[in-house]
Design a protein around this nucleic acid. Structure first.
Lengths: 157, 157
DNA sequence: ATTGAAAGAGTCTCAGT
DNA sequence: ACTGAGACTCTTTCAAT
């Protein structure tokens, strides 16, 4: 498997290990991959500079901090040229955590996290209905997350 | 705002800061929140033990490592009681990184990351069509990710 | 529950290969 | 490009509050 940039097997192994645990020490990671901690350090620095690694994020149990509702919103636009302007409006709604420009059933597809169903209803009715360019929306509420995992890059190596 | 568990303002501030940068040092985080590094350490340990913090994940530029296609798959089940058994089959497909049991347009909703459109087509035709209990699927391909961000917990504080 | 300090562990740099 | 060692920084523990 070839890559667009200078990414080799060791880089992918580092990414693979850190995908599930970004907090692993360079020393331990080096031991696991049979290189020195210094090499791990250099590689991670390089991957950062290349923009391959964008950062680390905490995985939080949303229910535990009072966010009970996860939903997806399929968005139909009046004209697809309105994409940029609608995206700008959706960015202003803090509960919307992700937005994709899509092809298929919807023009855009959003993910939203709310404290309760009342908050979700409020955003759907008050905020989304007033955004110019949105024709209609379809809400898909998640009752349960079966699983969520990083992509398995090991097969590429 | 009250919480189901013993989570206070400082805990939420820690979660907020680390949501966007899980790699920040306890010392620096302590300075930012006007407590000692030792206190940060104790709080994070507590949040881990309580299951509020589940871990850290690397944010990777998928295109850079050869994954060009992100898509969502809406799944219609023959009977909703088949949920568990279908979920088990979907877990076996490594390209499917997330699965939710949903209400709305679909019974289940999956997220899939593939190297190219050929790989996606192959999974849709070969793998999904042979899973007992799936009536039909709808594929939504992401042409562009506008944004992706953690939930903003600061408003809760 | 928080602090400050000491001990231990990890990162980061660099000269040598 | 990798290593090992030294300098530096951070984590982790703990007695005191």
């Amino acid at each position: 498997m070839s890559h667009p940039l200078n990414i080799d097997k060791l880089d992918l192994q580092i990414i693979s290990e850190m995908s599930t645990d970004a907090g692993i020490s360079y020393a331990e990671l080096g031991k696991k991959l049979f290189v020195s901690g210094g090499t791990i350090h250099v590689r991670i620095k390089k991957l950062h500079e290349m923009g391959v690694i964008k950062g680390t994020r905490l995985q939080v149990n949303l229910r535990a901090i009072g966010y009970d509702v996860l939903a997806f919103i399929g968005i139909y636009l009046e004209k697809s040229s309105l994409y940029e302007s609608v995206a700008k409006q959706l960015l202003k709604i803090p509960q919307i955590v992700r937005l994709n420009y899509t092809t298929g059933s919807y023009s855009m597809f959003a993910e939203i996290i709310c404290k309760d169903s009342g908050e979700l209803r409020k955003i759907l009715q008050d905020d989304l209905q007033h955004i110019k360019g949105i024709e209609r929306t379809e809400t898909i509420i998640s009752l349960e997350e079966s699983f969520s995992r990083p992509i398995n890059v090991s097969e590429v190596i």
